[in-house]
Write a protein that binds this DNA or RNA. Structure first.
Lengths: 199, 199
DNA sequence: GACGCGACCAAGCGCGCGCTAGGTTGCCCG
DNA sequence: CGGGCAACCTAGCGCGCGCTTGGTCGCGTC
């Protein structure tokens, strides 16, 4: 078995099972999906899962950590690039929507289980990630208000919440093979957000 | 025991227990909250719940039916009033946000459990309600596009989804004793939706 | 003062859950 | 060709779940 620097074990089979678990957690909820279902879908017996993972909880933990690492990395990079607020915000929105393409199931698990999991010490890092995200996004909105890009009569944190909710929850209706790609949805959303729907 | 025309039994104690169940379902999820917790909070034993209800499932059923009846009634009335699209849309958004005040827990249960429950025949009415809501809302947007109130280059159903998501999911951060009332949040949201955040 | 009934208790059943312990198989490497 | 190990199986334990059955208590009614 190969082992990362200080991370969990590395194995193709492991990743496969983790993807199956993410799909089932997304579809039925963490509590409702059972280890037997995950094992069945993977073509093994439930007990054999524990050769790869410590517990059901550690599966969802790994799914969410991977997602959070990826999107937070993109957010940090977008802000660090130091472009003007409008462009930076566009980068952030695109980064968030693009997670729909690359981590669809994980995003669904995140929005569905966040409130439940964040109550436990093991998952406190979820709150830390959410806080950092809010700082980054709201900061960009504040910068935009300061330099006149955005209206001065809006509440940056309220705007952040509206954006976050509309973006993340779109995982519930987003269809990978549907009419719009994540990038197109991002642009449609930004268009409405910036200019409104009034004629 | 009093009985409605064709509805379930009527009793103050029953309503009390139903409110407790809604609160726990909202906080921990339908699958995770147990009948023993509900009974404990109500100050009775778990078996005694079954004097009032057929099953745990019928509790969530009643919670969601009540919510759906209320909001759908408001939506129908708003559209039937026949005002101009801008005013009608404002009524719809306010009706949705006001449910945060009057049915906070029920709204949380609806958004958290919709995808799970709608898979079962017993809860098919949830999809029917969602479909009717989409027809009503998107219809108003279409009317607004037709008469020049709204931009003609937007997708009414996409706009509906963005609105619905941002509104309903706000139950996750809405605080009854917080800075903004549901009505104020509705107006803030409408302001951004109509005119955008660009200066 | 017995009766009916709404509200709840007492006790526990059966099921499916997450998880465990020890054994088997087959591939890779020296 | 033999040791080591990843992958999986076999069998089942114990717990907490939703729910059931039969009984108790007290209040309002005639």
């Amino acid at each position: 078995m190969q082992v990362g620097a200080d991370g969990p074990a590395v194995s193709a089979r492991r990743d496969e099972i983790l993807a199956i678990a993410a799909e089932l957690f997304a579809e039925k909820g963490f509590a409702t999906a059972t280890v037997r279902e995950i094992a069945d879908t993977a073509g093994i017996l439930s007990g054999s899962l524990y050769h790869h993972f410590d517990s059901k909880e550690s599966m969802v933990d790994e799914i969410l950590r991977t997602l959070l690492d990826d999107v937070l990395g993109r957010y940090r990079a977008a802000v660090a690039a130091g472009r003007d607020p409008a462009k930076t915000l566009r980068e952030l929105v695109r980064a968030a929507f693009s997670a729909l393409g690359s981590h669809r199931a994980a995003v669904a698990v995140m929005i569905n289980e966040y409130n439940l999991l964040v109550q436990y010490p093991r998952f406190e890092y979820l709150r830390a990630g959410a806080d950092e995200t809010e700082q980054l996004w709201a900061g960009v909105v504040e910068d935009g208000i300061a330099d006149g890009t955005f209206r001065s009569d809006i509440d940056p944190h309220m705007i952040y919440r509206f954006m976050r909710d509309a973006i993340w929850v779109s995982v519930r209706w987003y269809q990978p093979d549907g009419r719009y790609s994540p990038e197109e949805i991002a642009d449609l959303y930004l268009d409405v957000l910036l200019d409104g729907i009034a004629a």
